[in-house]
Design a protein around this nucleic acid. Structure first.
Lengths: 336, 336
DNA sequence: CGCTATACTGAAAACGTTATCACTAATTAT
DNA sequence: ATAATTAGTGATAACGTTTTCAGTATAGCG
């Protein structure tokens, strides 16, 4: 491996000039040519460690997700990474295994590695530790977000799309619509419920508490919880004629229950799911499903982070809502 | 941020002694205590860049996968990462988008970042560039492997498990068994076909060329290709009574075709798939499916890499085969 | 008790960059 | 033509570690 000094010698300039060339600072054209030629000849690559040591910038971004083998999180990170790479950043992704304690450790680890910023999908509804461990760091929170927020945040627009889904069910004659929600400490869970409530209100239907179920939707227990909750819901009076599962895992659990019990969709109950791609392709009949735009989610996260990285002064934090879409299948029965 | 010098001052020793403490080198107990106390008090963390600059070791491992939002690859990397972290390494994962040109770029980028080693899932059947770009680097190749191999390699044992599957089909009275294989330039594709051929031979059944289809199984086109090939297979004479799809995407494509055409499994054709977890839970009837052990795959990749990282001298490259398992569903019909 | 071997220690020189600063050459204004 | 500015240069000092090396205590030995 050759160094800036080797290049300088070959080009007949000082190391400082070589540094100026590789950092796009003004240099006499003649010197520029000689240096670039020397760089090519020696296959010189600036040493990242030395550079970071001097500049205090590693051009590395730390990402933490609850489960890195889960497409949902990784797709977000993939697209964020793409944008960040365009700006010269590299990315380190770590897995918190859905546990806050581990998440904290990973953030700490990334701090030791001197990352320049973070994109985090929280494991639990708490990010207070960030200010202790990584105070002053550029941070973007993504998807799972605690309610009082002091950071830049990107979430999918749940209110709107759930509103539309409920509206559609109503127009198909459904009055008793059950919904399986996430814990209301999460912003996204709140939003999705808000869409449900608002639609019913707008159409002057009463809201039946018994048809609104709150479920711990963490990736570890979400499926199981939704499974049980679906049973509960279908035993309520009035029995719901339609169900909305407001999350990937909740969708999975709910459908598994109905499959196990042989409950026919849409004959016995209509259904709208969330984010379950593979299933959408294969389930018979095709499920109606809400899909979040992970590509945009990641891109926005990257944008917000870059904004922080590039601005020197304090900027007020921003919350970005990314549109979701509802794809229709044959899982909604027309009543009457 | 405090430095080794601040710590030294507070502890009343030289920076060298502090360095010795944080690197577990022998130090007088009294000094050890004073230094650790000072470290705690100042919340000192050794600067990674400075350390790397001096030691030429970053403790970073580069990983490259074709698609980082694909659970298959990420699960491998997740478990590899776990093992590597235990040994103090951090991991940078990059996405080659299934294109060799990009893969090369990512490897180059990771070289610039001075990673200490690589775990790579190749996009195409060629890793010759590695010797140009990253010659001498510790490298482990994973899952998709070109045939003549000069690196450490981890693959799933396809021969054995496909053999078992074919055997099972034979015992259920099937003689005409179709198989959708990957391109024979891939080691894994070869192995899976080998299992098929050997089982038929062992049971003295003729091998019918028309029932063995070779398909480009890359993540971009695999599904589509399998879709078309399934049609072909089912139009062959003799018509196969059972089908084996030897890969996740091939399974997906094949099942999609049969679903679209309303071909009933197992009534019209028996089926054994590969790696399609979500589907296994939901498809009706339950598919018989081969599952690879990604956890072990990743763990072995990490083990091989650590072996290279820790050994100073040249070691001969190793090829590790990880057992797969066959999970039975109701997709195999008993003939006669 | 003196001698050698042992076990730590601190000073100082790296590692490969970038940033500062004083300086020179080239340009412009007068 | 000379003075005043501008543009670009190289020497040098960081950045925060580790490593070498010579040195100093301490322990072990006869």
């Amino acid at each position: 491996m050759s160094t800036i000094i080797d290049v300088a010698k070959l080009a007949g300039t000082s190391p400082a000039t070589v540094s100026r060339v590789i950092n796009n600072k003004p240099v006499r054209p003649e010197n520029y040519d000689r240096v670039t030629a020397a760089i090519k000849e020696l296959r010189f690559e600036a040493n990242a460690s030395a550079r970071s040591l001097k500049t205090k910038k590693t051009w590395n971004i730390g990402m933490v997700v609850p489960f890195m083998d889960f497409f949902y999180f990784m797709r977000i990170m993939k697209y964020a990474q793409q944008r960040l790479e365009e700006q010269g950043y590299s990315v380190m992704i770590m897995d918190s295994e859905g546990e806050q304690e581990l998440e904290k450790e990973k953030v700490k680890k990334l701090m030791e590695l001197n990352v320049d910023g973070f994109i985090i999908v929280l494991s639990e509804n708490d990010c207070s530790y960030i200010n202790e461990i990584a105070s002053g760091m550029p941070v973007v929170l993504c998807d799972k977000v605690p309610n009082p927020i002091h950071h830049d945040v990107v979430v999918c627009d749940g209110a709107n799309i759930v509103y539309k889904s409920v509206e559609l069910l109503i127009k198909n004659g459904h009055e008793n619509i059950g919904i399986i929600c996430g814990p209301q400490v999460y912003y996204t869970a709140q939003e999705r419920l808000k869409g449900y409530l608002r639609a019913l209100e707008d159409y002057h239907y009463p809201i039946k508490e018994s048809l609104v179920k709150y479920v711990a939707w963490d990736t570890k227990h979400g499926v199981r919880n939704a499974y049980d909750t679906t049973r509960e819901l279908l035993n309520e009076t009035p029995r719901p004629t339609a169900l909305i599962a407001s999350n990937y895992d909740l969708t999975k659990g709910s459908l598994l229950y109905m499959q196990d019990e042989g409950i026919k969709i849409p004959e016995e109950v209509s259904f709208v799911g969330y984010d379950f791609e593979e299933l959408y392709e294969f389930y018979n009949p095709k499920m109606s499903m809400i899909f979040e735009d992970f590509e945009e989610l990641g891109a926005q996260a990257a944008r917000l982070l870059l904004r922080q990285l590039q601005s020197s002064g304090n900027i007020s934090s921003e919350i970005v809502r990314v549109k979701s879409r509802l794809v229709l299948g044959d899982s909604i029965k027309k009543l009457k």
